Simulated scan of single mutants.
Amino acid sequence: MAIRTGQAAINFAKGQVTNPSQDWFRLCLVFVRKCFNVGPLYGSAEKGYFGTDFRHGTTGTPPLGVPVWWTNGGDGHVAISAGDGTCFSNDIKRRGKIDRVAISFITRNWGQRYRGWSEDVNGVRVWRPGAPTPLLPAVDLSNVQDAARRDQFRPQGQGLHEKDVLIVEKALRHQGLKPAEFVDGYAGTEFRKAYAKWQKATVPPPFDGIPGRESLTKLGQRNGFRVIN
Rank of each mutant, 00 (worst) to 15 (best):
residue 95 R to M: 12
residue 117 W to K: 01
residue 37 N to E: 05
residue 197 K to L: 10
residue 101 V to L: 09
residue 58 T to I: 03
residue 35 C to S: 08
residue 140 D to A: 10
residue 149 R to E: 09
residue 151 D to T: 03
residue 8 A to M: 06
residue 96 G to A: 00
residue 204 P to H: 03
residue 32 V to R: 00
residue 114 Y to W: 02
residue 111 G to T: 15
residue 71 T to G: 06
residue 90 N to H: 06
residue 207 F to E: 03
residue 228 I to C: 07
residue 147 A to R: 05
residue 168 V to S: 03
residue 147 A to V: 07
residue 23 D to G: 02
residue 183 V to Y: 02
residue 173 R to E: 15
residue 27 L to G: 03
residue 74 G to L: 14
residue 50 F to E: 06
residue 36 F to V: 09
residue 13 A to Y: 07
residue 12 F to I: 08
residue 53 D to G: 15
residue 69 W to Q: 12
residue 53 D to L: 13
residue 157 G to I: 11
residue 129 P to K: 08
residue 9 A to H: 04
residue 175 Q to C: 12
residue 211 P to Y: 08
residue 78 V to H: 08
residue 224 G to R: 06
residue 223 N to Q: 08
residue 148 A to C: 13
residue 14 K to M: 09
residue 59 T to C: 04
residue 179 P to H: 12
residue 219 L to H: 02
residue 129 P to E: 12
residue 156 Q to N: 08
residue 155 P to R: 11
residue 98 I to L: 11
residue 172 L to I: 11
residue 80 I to C: 11
residue 103 I to A: 10
residue 188 G to I: 03
residue 2 A to C: 08
residue 46 E to Q: 13
residue 195 Y to K: 04
residue 173 R to N: 13
residue 87 C to M: 15
residue 171 A to K: 01
residue 45 A to D: 04
residue 125 R to E: 15
residue 141 L to G: 05
residue 37 N to A: 12
residue 180 A to Q: 15
residue 20 P to Y: 13
residue 84 D to S: 14
residue 229 N to Y: 10
residue 51 G to L: 09
residue 228 I to K: 08
residue 196 A to P: 01
residue 120 D to K: 05
residue 78 V to I: 08
residue 7 Q to T: 15
residue 36 F to A: 06
residue 61 T to C: 04
residue 186 Y to A: 00
residue 42 Y to N: 14
residue 115 R to S: 05
residue 55 R to V: 07
residue 61 T to E: 00
residue 224 G to D: 09
residue 68 V to D: 11
residue 203 V to G: 07
residue 152 Q to W: 04
residue 130 G to F: 05
residue 197 K to C: 03
residue 87 C to Y: 13
residue 47 K to F: 07
residue 1 M to C: 10
residue 62 P to A: 00
residue 130 G to K: 03
residue 74 G to H: 14
residue 211 P to D: 13
residue 204 P to D: 14
residue 132 P to K: 15
residue 19 N to W: 08
residue 100 R to G: 06
residue 28 C to M: 09
residue 52 T to S: 15
residue 163 K to Y: 06
residue 22 Q to Y: 03
residue 124 V to F: 01
residue 77 H to Q: 06
residue 200 K to L: 06
